Amino acid sequence: MSFQAYLDTIQAKTGKTPEDFTRLAASKGFYENGKIASGIKATEITDWLKEEFGLGHGHAMAIYALLKGKEE
């Protein structure tokens, strides 16, 4: 599955765009100044995405990669 396919599936499941996830991560303190906040671990972000949005591990990691700067 391509990175874009992961993002498309996530949007279909949650109704959230990549930009929405960036804003939500920032509101949680996970993302600031265009990057993942200092001291934040991948598991903190993936656990949040799994719990709040019901994402599986691979899809949660796709959002983590997006926050790390991977291009769509």
Score class of each variant (00 low, 15 high):
residue 25 A to L: 09
residue 4 Q to V: 15
residue 24 L to I: 15
residue 11 Q to P: 03
residue 60 A to P: 01
residue 24 L to H: 08
residue 66 L to D: 00
residue 24 L to K: 09
residue 50 K to F: 08
residue 31 Y to D: 03
residue 56 G to H: 07
residue 51 E to G: 13
residue 28 K to R: 15
residue 63 I to H: 01
residue 57 H to W: 11
residue 61 M to P: 01
residue 4 Q to C: 14
residue 14 T to M: 00
residue 34 G to W: 01
residue 7 L to S: 07
residue 41 K to I: 13
residue 28 K to F: 14
residue 31 Y to C: 05
residue 62 A to D: 00
residue 4 Q to M: 14
residue 25 A to R: 04
residue 46 T to F: 11
residue 33 N to Q: 12
residue 19 E to T: 08
residue 9 T to G: 14
residue 68 K to V: 07
residue 15 G to K: 07
residue 19 E to A: 14
residue 17 T to N: 02
residue 44 E to H: 11
residue 33 N to H: 08
residue 56 G to N: 06
residue 47 D to Y: 13
residue 39 G to T: 07
residue 35 K to V: 11
residue 10 I to P: 00
residue 58 G to W: 14
residue 51 E to T: 15
residue 8 D to L: 13
residue 13 K to F: 07
residue 45 I to G: 06
residue 56 G to D: 04
residue 40 I to E: 03
residue 60 A to T: 03
residue 13 K to V: 07
residue 27 S to K: 14
residue 53 F to C: 01
residue 47 D to E: 15
residue 23 R to A: 15
residue 11 Q to V: 10
residue 33 N to L: 12
residue 11 Q to F: 04
residue 35 K to Q: 11
residue 47 D to W: 09
residue 13 K to P: 04
residue 40 I to C: 10
residue 31 Y to G: 06
residue 54 G to I: 02
residue 57 H to A: 06
residue 58 G to C: 09
residue 15 G to D: 12
residue 52 E to N: 12
residue 14 T to G: 02
residue 66 L to P: 02
residue 27 S to A: 15
residue 61 M to G: 02
residue 25 A to E: 01
residue 70 K to P: 05
residue 10 I to G: 04
residue 39 G to P: 06
residue 8 D to K: 11
residue 63 I to A: 04
residue 13 K to D: 07
residue 50 K to R: 09
residue 51 E to M: 14
residue 45 I to R: 02
residue 56 G to E: 03
residue 50 K to Q: 04
residue 41 K to T: 11
residue 13 K to C: 05
residue 56 G to S: 08
residue 37 A to I: 09
residue 32 E to Y: 05
residue 10 I to K: 01
residue 36 I to A: 07
residue 42 A to I: 11
residue 12 A to T: 12
residue 19 E to L: 03
residue 23 R to Y: 10
residue 47 D to P: 11
residue 16 K to I: 01
residue 44 E to G: 14
residue 33 N to R: 09
residue 15 G to T: 09
residue 32 E to H: 07
residue 25 A to N: 04
residue 23 R to T: 14
residue 36 I to F: 09
residue 51 E to K: 15
residue 64 Y to E: 02
residue 8 D to M: 12
residue 32 E to W: 06
residue 22 T to C: 10
residue 68 K to H: 04
residue 11 Q to H: 10
residue 54 G to L: 06
residue 28 K to T: 15
residue 42 A to E: 09
residue 34 G to C: 03
residue 60 A to C: 07
residue 27 S to Q: 15
residue 21 F to N: 00
residue 54 G to P: 00
residue 62 A to I: 03
residue 38 S to M: 13
residue 31 Y to K: 02
residue 20 D to T: 06
residue 42 A to H: 08
residue 37 A to G: 08
residue 45 I to A: 10
residue 21 F to S: 03
residue 15 G to S: 12
residue 29 G to R: 02
residue 31 Y to S: 00
residue 31 Y to P: 00
residue 24 L to M: 15
residue 65 A to M: 08
residue 8 D to G: 11
residue 19 E to F: 03
residue 22 T to E: 08
residue 52 E to T: 13
residue 5 A to R: 14
residue 44 E to T: 14
residue 63 I to F: 04
residue 45 I to T: 11
residue 15 G to Y: 09
residue 39 G to A: 06
residue 11 Q to D: 12
residue 59 H to Q: 14
residue 14 T to L: 00
residue 60 A to D: 02
residue 69 G to F: 04
residue 64 Y to N: 03
residue 39 G to H: 01
residue 20 D to K: 03
residue 19 E to S: 12
residue 46 T to N: 05
residue 10 I to W: 02
residue 32 E to C: 09
